[in-house]
Design a protein around this nucleic acid. Sequence first.
DNA 1: TTGTAAGCGTTATCAC
DNA 2: GTGATAACGCTTACAA
Lengths: 327, 327
Amino acid sequence: MATIKQVAMAAGVSVATVSRVINQNGYVHEDTRRKVEDAIRELNYAPNEVARSLFKRKSKLIGLLLPDITNPYFPQLARGVEDEMQENDYRLIFGNSDESREKEMDYIQTFIQNNVVGVISSTNDFDADMYANLKIPVVFLDRTSNDRPSVFADGREGGRIAAREIVRRGSKKITVLQGPTHVRPARERSEGAIEVLQELGISYDVFLTTSFSLTEAEDWAKELFDQYPDTDGVLASNDMVASAVLQEAHRLGKRVPEDVQIIGFDDIPLSKLLVPSLSTIHQPAYEMGRKAAKLLIQFIEGQHVEHHSIQYPVKFIERQTTRKVVL
Amino acid sequence: MATIKQVAMAAGVSVATVSRVINQNGYVHEDTRRKVEDAIRELNYAPNEVARSLFKRKSKLIGLLLPDITNPYFPQLARGVEDEMQENDYRLIFGNSDESREKEMDYIQTFIQNNVVGVISSTNDFDADMYANLKIPVVFLDRTSNDRPSVFADGREGGRIAAREIVRRGSKKITVLQGPTHVRPARERSEGAIEVLQELGISYDVFLTTSFSLTEAEDWAKELFDQYPDTDGVLASNDMVASAVLQEAHRLGKRVPEDVQIIGFDDIPLSKLLVPSLSTIHQPAYEMGRKAAKLLIQFIEGQHVEHHSIQYPVKFIERQTTRKVVL
DNA sequence: TTGTAAGCGTTATCAC
DNA sequence: GTGATAACGCTTACAA
């Protein structure tokens, strides 16, 4: 890689001048500018971001921390973030945290060591020192912190909607699958659902699942019907579990939606390809990722920010795992 | 963030000494070492990777370029790469290329500007100057370059296996879904399938799909049965298209696997949760990601590397979209 | 065993 | 308009 010095040499000017033309600041004569630009092209020069970063004490790098990219919900968030960042010339250092505080700290640490100018994180530990002490802007994504910038969906309302819809469509004995309790959105979803079920005086049970892992989803589906064989409505904590439940129902000879209705959560891309296609609560994941990125950029660039916390509405997507509602 | 200078100050030594203790090279007295270590702890010091990178002209950063993380096959590769890298203290700068040469070049460019020490890429343009001229090691992942380090699965054999299995299970009029032709693994899969079909003298048609996009998958599924209504066996180019085909078959009242058999490709996590669960060709994506990372690290660290190109075997996963074979 | 100082590739300040 | 040069935080000769 050519350096600014070599460019200066080739153009017969000083490095200062070259720096001026690449950064478009300070005065530089039209003729010299052209000479420099020629040299740059000639040598195929691009500024060393590391040197820049060292001098300015800020890079064009952003840290992105997601629980597990292997969970189909997160790629969409990630993609939203990436698209927005790339359009604004920021690059992403990416890590999976597995919801583990240790890994998270590790990543935050190296983010700092690499002079990232901001981080986007899906964490459960907002208040952990690592975030509190960060001197760069952080936007929490998919997770709500009450007092810190965050972009998330209205999980509670999602839970309420799901409950309302499944009841409206005739389920009488509902099972609420509750995701990991330390994950706030998961908690809120089931809380919302339970609220409505209680308001409506509908009989329900809560079935606890302790992770979002796909491999375990199958086991839970089995256990679920083992424990509540006569449930006629399942509110799943996400679409993967919903798929597992759907499959298990089928295996047991239960008809969906006639015998059991199922509503998922997230609306991952594949949910509409299931048979029957999955009714679910849609979160605008891609948009949320983009928004988080936009927000972070605004902070980084010191722009005025209207709302620090952005809650996206969710909506019910009616597909085939729920019955038609009779008017 | 504390600097090495402050640590030196606090410990009452020179920066050189501090540098020696953090890098564990050169002599340093036990007592001074302790003093320095105390100071480091006290100030919560961690070396600035940017400064290091500038001096050494190499970072602890790796560039990872994937076509689209939103395609469920790639997160697994990414996760494999990430796990291996993180265990070896490398960090990932991640980008989606959308199979676009321009985006790809853009990323490669910024990788270099950030002093990455290696890159892992899923590309179709191995020979493009951008790779040829790179002075850092590159490992191609999921894509085969004949003469450059790469980790990939045996797509041709996968196609052959799929064809053999579907025929063995009784399909007589097969449709081979061919993915985007500029994507080599996609091409090889269908080539493999066609080879076998010809060898066996089975009637078949080829149906071209021009992307791996999920949204379009549904349209293709419709067109497929439109064009070849009496096909009784579909060899899909990946599991997403297979899902779409499965769904469309169901919509048309075709029974799977009785009327139509379907075999996917990739074995994405969700394929086993479909109803009926999807028979498919398994690629060990996670392992492949890990392997690519391992290989790259070996190159970076100048270790001897036995095999530059690693081909993983694929295998048929028998599930419910194919019939039982009669013995 | 430890310290001094040069240099990695930039940018910004200050002279000219 | 342009050029020297110090500084960003680190590592590594080399000197002591």
